[in-house]
């Protein structure tokens, strides 16, 4: 299971990188989102997989009893997802903005500012 999931994560990384390398603005966003997703999965898998048992104490327990999922990667993951969302939303809006201002969907055109209307 872990091996398969690792390969899927690698594929996610691969596709995201493929999109990021393109010149198209829209593909850049797609690539960024996929990259975030891949990173999250990477962290999750690297933290160790525990099938089923979540890191929640049952009503009659005072301390957690094995087996239970490692809560630390999960806490990191939650933070990462939320921050990643902030980044994605910002990226989407800024790319929309760039598209409006530059009238171009090509990243390479951003190297000069000839298209900006003042």
């Amino acid at each position: 299971m872990e091996a398969l999931l690792s390969i899927v994560t690698g594929m996610l990384f691969m596709v995201s990188m493929y999109f990021i390398l393109h010149r198209h603005l829209f593909k850049l966003i797609l690539g960024l989102i996929l990259f975030g997703l891949a990173t999250n999965l990477f962290m999750f898998v690297a933290g160790g997989l525990t099938r089923g048992n979540s890191a929640i104490l049952k009503q009659d327990q005072e301390v957690a009893i094995e087996p239970y999922a490692d809560p630390v990667p999960q806490a990191l993951l939650l933070t990462a997802i939320v921050i990643g969302f902030g980044l994605q939303a910002f990226a989407i809006v800024i790319i929309k903005r760039v598209y409006q201002v530059y009238k171009s969907n090509n990243l390479d055109d951003l190297a000069n500012n000839d298209n900006i209307e003042h």
Partner: peptide
């Protein structure tokens, strides 16, 4: 996947 491997909170957020 998050749900399956014991991370319901993460799954909800995702």
């Amino acid at each position: 996947f998050y749900i399956l491997f014991g991370a319901p909170d993460v799954a909800a957020t995702q």
